[in-house]
Lab assay of single mutants.
Amino acid sequence: LVRYRTISKIPQITLNFVDLKGDPFLASPTSDREIIAPKIKERTHNVTEKVTQVLSLGADVLPEYKLQAPRIHRWTILHYSPFKAVWDWLILLLVIYTAVFTPYSAAFLLKETEEGPPATECGYACQPLAVVDLIVDIMFIVDILINFRTTYVNANEEVVSHPGRIAVHYFKGWFLIDMVAAIPFDLLIFGSGSEELIGLLKTARLLRLVRVARKLDRYSEYGAAVLFLLMCTFALIAHWLACIWYAIGNMEQPHMDSRIGWLHNLGDQIGKPYNSSGLGGPSIKDKYVTALYFTFSSLTSVGFGNVSPNTNSEKIFSICVMLIGSLMYASIFGNVSAIIQRLYSGTARYHTQMLRVREFIRFHQIPNPLRQRLEEYFQHAWSYTNGIDMNAVLKGFPECLQADICLHLNRSLLQHCKPFRGATKGCLRALAMKFKTTHAPPGDTLVHAGDLLTALYFISRGSIEILRGDVVVAILGKNDIFGEPLNLYARPGKSNGDVRALTYCDLHKIHR
């Protein structure tokens, strides 16, 4: 019993810090008490220290592992850092350059016999395009090294910054494609005289377009951006097909006994025919423009016929181009109408809503002055909100995010209106959640004399007048207030005048 009563005193000691020596009952000389009392004092002292730490809000209350900052290894790049964003855009520009100039170089340097010394005699450094290609190869190699040090988000939505895990993730992902696209074939085969082989191998750079397509997928929600990307894709495919079309004609031209190829026909049409040795002929500019003209006309199913396939190889390629053109029509131009419709969806919704308003007016036989006010209010409210119901949009977000959005939407009023000066951010967040926005066209009466005042109004834009009878008592403008002081009276009061809008007004109100 003594032991039980001794232990039962522990909660009292913990909360009230009572010393055991003052209790005459606990001072009985028993061996059990002498053993338990020192333990009680020690526990009391420890609990006292913990309570003191909690009340003082000291940093040592938290466990040590929670006080440590997340460790980022040296030379690790955050995937959302500004440097990584700028670097990704730079790589994107280099990939676009590669997609345009690599097929052009591979096709127009394929057994090209233009006048001038061969590239091997001039030297590697004197070729501007080769120098640019070398810079692109170096940048792609540097990009691989950067990807080995860039964080990523795993399946659990955690940012991984450990170098080993980053390397394994990159090896399992895009490393092989990036490595093949970054191989400097110019340096590996330079001086061997195989410019045709170098041009063909350099087309491996186009593998990076797969990554670019995935990154550009984030802009699919913007109709104008999608339309622009589709047109660029169409032009890029036409450019690639033009390079292939020229390569076919250029390879067949020296081996044909009869002059029936499209390059021969082009030379005869523009007065620059090929001679018996295969030299001469149109310039590279004429060849490229004509090839691009043929691919565009074939892809769009126009086909004027002034550039036509004559050999079997050219006919087979033309059939493939027609098939590609039909697929592009289905996948690209078939979506253009939907994209344009999405661009004008706001206008369509406006006309639909206006039609419903006019049908309501016609069905209920609203008189002319009231009908005009109804239409003007709808037009003004639509121009202010673009038909978007803010309350319906915010309803799907958590309250903390709703408060931040409301604070942002009402920031101008909260910053410049005098009653809100000096208020804490928590108070402003709470008030912003209570605001209701209303609009009024010129001549609209917001409050009639004798109406119950259940709200306090803040003028965000425009001006109003307060009338008693036919006498203008006051004219209020931006950041002015009218209405009933909230919670100042037990019952809502009545208006002693009319409140009429002089201009288009936007008002925020808080109800009782």
Rank of each mutant, 00 (worst) to 15 (best):
P70W: 01
R71M: 11
H73L: 05
R74W: 04
T76K: 01
L78F: 13
S81C: 04
F83A: 11
V86P: 01
L92N: 01
L93N: 01
V100G: 01
A106F: 04
A106D: 01
L109A: 06
L110I: 03
K111S: 03
T113E: 10
T113Q: 12
E115R: 15
P117Q: 11
C122D: 01
G123P: 05
A130C: 03
V131Q: 05
V132R: 01
D137V: 01
I138T: 03
M139S: 07
F140C: 01
F140R: 01
F140P: 01
V142A: 08
D143G: 01
T150N: 01
T150P: 01
N154M: 09
N154F: 05
E157M: 15
E158Q: 12
V159K: 01
V159S: 01
S161E: 10
P163S: 06
G164E: 06
G164N: 14
R165N: 05
I166G: 01
V168M: 11
Y170A: 01
L176S: 11
D178Y: 01
V180R: 01
A182M: 09
I183L: 09
D186A: 14
D186G: 14
L188R: 14
G191I: 04
G193V: 03
G193Q: 13
L197D: 03
R214Q: 05
L216Y: 05
D217C: 12
D217W: 05
Y219P: 04
A224P: 14
A224T: 12
L230P: 03
F234D: 03
L236A: 01
W240L: 01
A242T: 01
G249L: 01
G249Q: 03
E252F: 01
R259H: 14
G261P: 01
L263G: 01
I270A: 01
K272L: 01
K272G: 01
G280M: 01
G281A: 01
P282W: 01
S283V: 01
D286H: 01
D286R: 01
K287V: 04
Y288M: 01
V289F: 01
A291C: 01
L292W: 01
L292V: 01
S298F: 03
V302G: 01
V302S: 04
G303F: 01
G303M: 01
F304L: 01
G305D: 01
V307H: 01
I324M: 07
I324A: 01
G325D: 01
M328E: 03
Y329A: 15
I332V: 10
G334Y: 03
V336M: 10
I339A: 03
I339D: 01
R342V: 10
T347H: 15
A348N: 03
T352D: 11
Q353H: 10
R356Q: 03
R358C: 03
R358N: 07
R358I: 01
F363M: 15
F363P: 01
N368T: 10
P369K: 04
Y377T: 12
F378N: 05
A381Q: 11
W382C: 01
Y384R: 11
Y384C: 06
T385W: 04
M390C: 10
K395V: 10
P398L: 01
P398N: 07
L401P: 01
Q402V: 04
A403K: 10
A403H: 03
I405Y: 01
C406R: 08
L414F: 14
P419F: 08
G422Y: 01
A423E: 01
L428D: 01
A430E: 11
L431M: 11
A432P: 02
A432L: 06
M433E: 01
K436S: 09
